[in-house]
Every structure is written in structure tokens, then in C-alpha cells.
């Protein structure tokens, strides 16, 4: 589904990604871990089309198409979704309006009719229940006055409604207490499917207790230094990142 080859990305004068390779197949959940400043967030933001980065080399192919050549909205309509680390507050734009506009943009792209208003509302209500969100959410501005936990839930709610093929989760666990983390993880788990891939970036192993990855990668210094199954995450928890960095330097 997603194939990244030798991806090199600059932010300003700084080279952040220095030849990153990664392949994610449909149905898989991948976790990218790594120390601060290793380029984890840059990777998912570049994949979602955030401006301000310069791709200096390499490719990212999504379902055979050149992902990096697409506008952010095209990627979204093709099924790519980014759950933001810091979801943006947009007072004056209604939450439900955004959900509906997003869903209709995707449906239109697929040649489908706009969603029926009644069906849409019952869909949103059902997903809100899953994310344990309050009814009052419906009439609020996008993330307006939400707590950190509410914002993260809202991201997963959007994902549940938009049903992407490739979900990119940027530190979705950060700032969550254990109850909120369970709700968020439960939401993500309910979205695991054979035709959907999830790529999550995280700092902490604890998220992986709730969302079990098929593959774990260590990103450091702009490259993936080591990949493994979920046991790699446990090893990182015990030993930190230094042994991998030293191993890579020695090799």
C-alpha cells in the first residue's frame, strides 16, 4: 500500500530524513519509535502533505501513485488520514460541518453521492459513542476549548467517520491519561481491517500495549536503523535507543 524509498527531507537548512525506507502492506499496523528529533513527526507530516518541508530525494508511493506529487486534499480523498499530534482549534467552523464536508469530498472523489443528512448524523452518533464523546460536541467549533484528551478522541472520531485506507497517527498517545488512552486505542483497534494500514508514530511503548503492532521500526538520525516485531518495542523500553545507535555506527 505504502512504499517509501530512500526518502530525504529538509526543513529549512536542516536535513531531517536521510534516506528512509519503509514498506507498509494493507492490513498491517506499523509503529515507528525513536528519540526526540529523529524525524518521526516529519515523516508523517510529509506523507500527509504538510507545507514547509522540502523533499530532496527519494519516493513515496501509495497504491502505485506518487504520493508526494499530490495536494493534501487529494491524498485525503485517496484515503490517507493524519491524526495530528496537536489538533488545531478552529472557532467558527463547526465540528460536524467539517466531518460532513470531509466525508462528502471523499465520496465525491469516488464518484459516490453525497451522504444523506439523517444517515450521516446516525453514523456520527454511533462513532461518538465508540469514542465516548459528549453530545454537546456536535455543536462546538472544531476542537474549540477541547481538553488535550478530547482533541485526540476527536481525531480518532474523524478517522472513524472518514474511514481511510492509510491512517497516520502522530503521537496520538501523548498527553493522554490512562483512561483516555484506552478509549483512543479501542477506537483505533476497532478500525483495524484487512484493507487498511496504520502507521503510528510514538514515543512510548505503552501505546503498543493497547494497539499491538505487526512491525516496529526504530527511526534515528533520519533513517530507520532497526525493524522487528513487537518484541523490539519491549527491548527498547528496557534498553533505550543507544544500543541501536551504537550498533548502527559500528556497522
Amino acid at each position: 500500500m505504502l512504499k517509501i524509498e530512500n526518502l530525504q527531507v529538509k526543513a529549512g537548512d536542516k536535513q531531517i530524513l536521510k534516506g528512509l525506507n519503509l514498506e507498509v502492506k494493507a492490513g498491517e499496523v506499523h509503529a515507528i519509535m525513536g528519540p526526540n528529533g529523529s524525524g518521526k513527526s516529519t515523516l508523517v507530516q510529509v506523507l500527509a502533505g504538510r507545507e514547509g518541508y522540502e523533499v530532496t530525494g527519494g519516493t513515496a508511493t501509495y497504491n502505485g501513485k506518487d504520493l508526494l506529487a499530490m495536494a493534501p486534499e487529494e491524498r485525503a480523498r485517496e484515503g490517507v488520514f493524519l491524526a495530528f499530534q496537536y489538533p488545531v482549534e478552529i472557532p467558527g467552523v463547526n465540528n460536524v460541518y467539517l466531518l460532513k464536508a470531509g466525508l462528502n469530498a471523499i465520496r465525491k472523489h469516488r464518484g459516490e453521492a453525497e451522504v444523506d443528512a439523517f444517515e450521516f448524523l446516525s453514523l456520527v452518533r454511533e462513532k461518538m459513542k465508540l469514542m465516548q464523546m459528549d453530545e454537546s460536541f456536535l455543536n462546538r467549533g472544531v476542537n474549540e476549548g477541547f481538553s488535550g484528551g478530547e482533541k485526540k478522541r476527536n481525531e480518532i472520531l474523524q478517522m472513524a467517520v472518514l474511514e481511510p485506507a492509510l491512517a497516520l497517527l502522530d503521537e496520538t498517545d501523548s498527553g493522554l491519561d490512562i483512561d483516555a488512552l484506552r478509549v483512543v486505542a479501542n477506537g483505533v483497534n476497532s478500525l483495524r481491517r484487512q484493507d487498511r494500514a496504520i502507521l503510528m508514530v510514538t514515543h512510548y511503548q505503552r501505546l503498543l500495549d493497547y494497539i499491538e503492532p505487526d512491525r516496529v521500526h526504530v527511526l534515528s538520525g533520519g533513517q530507520i536503523l532497526k525493524s522487528g516485531d513487537k518484541s523490539l518495542a519491549l527491548e527498547l523500553e528496557k534498553r533505550g535507543y543507544d544500543w541501536i545507535r551504537q550498533g548502527a555506527a559500528a556497522a
Binding site: A48, G49, R50, E51, A71, P72, E73, R75, A76, R77, F81, L82, F84, P87, V88, I90, V93, L98, A101, G102, L103, A105, I106, H109, V142, Q158, L162
Partner: peptide, 12 residues
């Protein structure tokens, strides 16, 4: 905010 909305499928 502009990027956020576009990342949800809305045109620029």
C-alpha cells in the same frame, strides 16, 4: 488550520 482542513479532504 488551512492544512488541517485540507488534510480532511477540503479543497484549498
Amino acid at each position: 488550520a488551512l492544512f488541517y482542513l485540507r488534510s480532511r479532504g477540503l479543497s484549498e
